[in-house]
Amino acid sequence: MTKPILIVGGGPAGLAAAHSLGTVGRSSILVEKEDKLGGAPILSGYAKLVPSGEWAKDAIGGMVDRVEGDSNIKVLTGTTVTKFDGTPGNFTAEFSNGDNAQVEAAVLCSGFTHFDSINKPEWGFGTFPDVVTTTQVEQMISSGQGVRCPSDGRKPQRVAILLCVGSRDRQIGREWCSKICCTVSSNLAMEIREELPECHVYIYYMDIRTFGLYETKYYWRSQEEFKVKYIKARIAEVTSDGEKLIVKGEDTLVKRPITIPFDMVVHAIGMDPNVDNPQLADIFGVDLEEHGHIAAENRYGAMGHTSRPGVFVAGAATGPETIDDSIAQGHAAAMSVLSELHQPVDKSA
């Protein structure tokens, strides 16, 4: 009898990997450290997803239901892997609940950690209650409460979204582009304008990276249909005059300093490597790339290989990733597991 495959992390990538293995009759153990499945879209309460526009709780919730209803998948929530030893086809994993299991391979779908805006104190998060993050605005929308200033619950009349908070910033050691924030922000801007048509939304950017088909669906549409305004400026600081938030910076297109009052400032927070990555790397014996994400190898011959044979990786564990691509990588990693186990390939293939 074949042994199960270990999947670490119950977000979009892990759910996809477990489902894929289940569809071909392979059993798996899905380990999730939080007490429910779904990953960031569910745990952080995302609203409508890019690009489908479906609510996260429906789209990702559906994936969770599918996994929970699959008898091939054993779900362990509130559990972490504490030890992992062996060789491909013959690993032993120990869990935080004291159990252990024999597994053939492991897929790390451990995702990312949201950037903590407190690390950019000049932008007022943690100091002024009306400075919030994109995740908080997602929650305001998904909870049905609507977009309101946390300080007094009023409807904002003017909102500034600051891009690249925790991304592309050598000062705080985060040199990567988090890939999704431009698109997410233009999507949120449209949702704010839809709910509060009187509210003006300004997006402060260094570059706009609504890549691929997101260009028209998000960047163009937000301007053409929702009249969101984009200003090329890296904000210097967010302060307050006691009533409104004051956003300071330089409007680079007219070479002029700006000091503009806003009701609400939204940080488009980036994707950090998962804070657990150093321990995961230690436990699973895999390499991290220079920024601290799990290093993916052999990207052409097969998907999802790490530096250790038999241990695979998928989704935002490898670097900032979209939900769609995380799901695709989850499926692809499952395929890699199967082909590796049944027909080991030369790594240089």
Binding site: R158, H200, Y202, D251, V254, R256, P257, I258, T259, I260, P261
Partner: peptide, 9 residues
């Protein structure tokens, strides 16, 4: 001052 201090929507 050349500071832009408000937007006139």
């Amino acid at each position: 001052s050349r500071v832009v201090s408000d937007y006139n929507e």
